[in-house]
């Protein structure tokens, strides 16, 4: 399906866009706060929404949880294993954090663009399968 600009947006598109935006805000602006907002949005709408919105809600929630693991826990592990005072700890940590964080952000922008186009999007490796689409 190739939606055009004049077509009616598919049901649940706005919710899908909000979910993807909150995923990105969580990564870029308000970590934690935006995740709580995404969690509330998920609980409130997951049972009664369209397949498109459900897909984006599930994707963003699970990707956000993975982002937490990849960005917080893995970095704590790097620090603990390498030691705060070791030069190479910081080489690994900064490179790892930057590479993973930007990858997650790029995936989020693809997800947001898909949501804006009324299409589903599955986060590679991180997201759940989208059903009913």
């Amino acid at each position: 399906m190739q939606p055009t600009d004049n077509e009616q947006p598919p049901p649940g598109q706005s919710l899908a866009v909000v979910a993807e935006s909150l995923y990105l805000v969580n990564l870029l602006l308000l970590p934690g706060f935006a995740f709580i907002a995404l969690l509330l949005l998920y609980w409130r709408h997951i049972g009664q929404t369209s397949p498109l919105a459900r897909c984006h809600l599930e994707q963003t929630l699970f990707a956000s949880l993975w982002a937490g693991v990849l960005l917080i826990l893995a970095n704590i592990a790097i620090l603990l294993l390498g030691g705060y005072d070791a030069a190479y700890t910081w080489v690994v940590l900064v490179l790892y954090f930057t590479a993973v964080h930007t990858t997650l952000v790029i995936l989020g922008t693809i997800g947001l663009a898909k949501a804006m186009a009324g299409k589903p999007f599955e986060y590679p490796l991180l997201g759940k399968k989208c059903h009913g689409l």
Binding site: D5, T109, I110, L112, A113, K114, M116
Partner: peptide, 16 residues
């Protein structure tokens, strides 16, 4: 630059 990324992906998704 961030907006350009969304813009480009958006155009690609809406291509006719």
């Amino acid at each position: 630059f961030f907006m350009m990324v969304i813009f480009a992906f958006n155009m690609a998704n809406k291509r006719r």
